[in-house]
Design a protein around this nucleic acid. Structure first.
Length: 120
DNA sequence: CATCTGACACTAT
DNA sequence: TATAGTGCCAGAT
C-alpha cells in the first residue's frame, strides 16, 4: 500500500457526515496538489470510505447512471442540499485543517540560519 | 522507457 | 450549460 494512498484515504475519512469535499481539495489536503486522479484511484480501490462525500470541482457529482443517483440520495439523506446538479458547497464543503492528516516526519533539524534567499 | 487510462481541473468557445 | 483541448499524476501494460 503506497503512502500516497494511505494519506488520501485518511483525508477522505476526515470528511464528516453532512459535509463534502472535492477530488482536487482532497488531493491537496493529502499533500499531493494536482493529483485529483489519484483520489479517484483510491476511491475505486478501497472500501469503507465515505465515497459519496467526494465530488468534482464546484460540488458536482461526476458519477454516471445509478451510481450518481445513489451518491445524491446518500448525500441528501445526510442533509446535504443541492442547487441544481451541484451541492451547496458554500454550506457543506469540509475544511481540512492545515495538518497533513498525519505525516510530519522531520528528518534533520532545519536549523536554518535565517534568511536563505538564494539569489534569483 | 513508451503508452494508455481515469468517478479530475481549468480555460476557452 | 455543454463540449473540446490541455495539463496533471501515478499505476498498469
Amino acid at each position: 500500500m503506497s503512502e500516497m494512498r494511505i494519506r488520501i484515504e485518511s483525508a477522505i475519512r476526515l470528511i464528516s457526515r453532512g459535509k463534502v469535499s472535492t477530488y482536487g481539495a482532497i488531493a491537496k489536503a493529502a499533500g499531493y496538489p494536482g493529483a485529483a486522479r489519484q483520489v479517484v484511484a483510491t476511491l475505486r480501490g478501497s472500501v469503507g470510505l465515505p465515497w459519496h462525500r467526494v465530488l468534482g470541482a464546484g460540488g458536482q457529482i461526476k458519477l454516471l447512471g445509478d451510481s450518481g443517483l445513489e451518491q445524491r440520495f446518500r448525500l441528501e439523506a445526510e442533509g446535504v442540499k443541492f442547487r441544481g446538479r451541484r451541492v451547496n458547497m458554500k454550506e457543506h464543503e469540509f475544511k481540512f485543517t492545515k495538518q497533513k492528516t498525519a505525516k510530519a516526519k522531520r528528518k534533520t533539524s532545519p536549523q536554518r540560519t535565517r534568511r536563505e534567499h538564494k539569489g534569483h
